[in-house]
Write a protein that binds this DNA or RNA. Structure first.
Length: 273
DNA sequence: CGGCAAACCTGCGAGC
DNA sequence: TGCTCGCAGGTTTGCC
């Protein structure tokens, strides 16, 4: 499911139901997802999530007492709010945050590529999963120059480089194709051969597409839901992703789908050089 | 170190 | 209708 805009949407949606809401308990309905779930979460007395933020595609929940939950949605993860305790849970509701007032927030993940870890809050930045991450793409400091710095030695196709979280944090398979289309750059160009103008255009395109998607609540292909239960609707604004054989929105040439390093890549062979 | 395929797991749509 | 196959938004590992 989730690239940066979807994770950002989920984070924002979790603030109201979860942040600083007194919890009765946190319950696991199985003992592991991608990794074993941190058993310490289930033994906390009066647990409280004091803050919720995002780094790359990771959700960071600060827990009272000095620990932080690092959560990842994998491919199919979502958070679901139950206004009252449900009679039965979805079979893929794996972790339940049970509020004292009866509201429950479930972490649901059919494919179980997601995970939750519990680490000392001071150690979050140094966690192996977060340590190597590249720059966040939304701040003004993410520029063509910043991108060029990361890519000047990258002898691989730009599409592949954009999926490397050490280059830029949070771009995934959909937004890599969309951003390259907006910037009119071929996905197959070696990343270290772009011009300064290319890098500027690409950095701008990444910011534009991610911001527009966040405004739309992310993209719902299969699994993504906002915490409110609403779908995201940015998928209706895709220019090339999933559009193979359809006309390019700019020049009407047929969009091409090609597998690159195992990932579907969509592009306009006319517009993107 | 770089680059790539495979692995992790379930669900869904397409095709027969 | 029902089966099999291929594919899916991510990350890590292991092999060349």
């Amino acid at each position: 499911m989730p690239e940066l805009p979807e994770v950002e949407t989920v984070c924002r949606g979790l603030i109201k139901p979860l942040k600083n809401k007194p919890l009765k308990e946190i319950v696991f309905r199985r003992k592991d997802l991608r990794f074993p779930l941190p058993i310490a979460l289930t033994t906390l007395k009066n647990p409280l999530v004091e803050d919720i933020s995002r780094r790359a595609k990771y959700i960071l929940m600060t827990v009272k007492g000095g620990k932080t939950i690092i959560a990842h949605l994998g491919m199919s993860g979502a958070f679901i709010v139950y206004d009252t305790p449900p009679k039965t849970y979805d079979k893929h509701d794996h972790v339940i945050f049970r509020r004292k007032d009866g509201v429950e927030i479930a972490f649901r993940d059919p494919r179980r590529f997601g995970f939750m870890l519990l680490v000392d809050t001071k150690m979050v930045k140094d966690h192996p999963s977060l340590k190597e991450l590249g720059p966040e793409p939304l701040p003004k400091t993410f520029t063509g120059k910043a991108l060029a710095e990361k890519l000047k030695k990258a002898k691989r196709p730009i599409k592949i480089a954009l999926l490397d979280q050490r280059v830029v944090a949070g771009v995934g398979n959909i937004y890599a194709s969309e951003a390259l289309f907006l910037a009119k750059i071929s996905p197959f160009i070696m990343a270290n051969t772009l011009t300064p103008q290319n890098y500027d255009n690409l950095a701008g395109a990444i910011q534009k597409v991610l911001n527009k998607s966040i405004k739309a609540g992310g993209s719902s292909l299969k699994d993504h839901r906002q915490v409110s239960g609403e779908l995201g609707y940015f998928q209706h604004q895709f220019q090339v992703y999933g559009k193979d054989k359809k006309p390019c929105p700019v020049c009407k040439t047929a969009i091409v789908k090609k597998t690159v390093s195992g990932r579907s890549t969509f592009f306009c062979p006319q517009c993107q050089k």
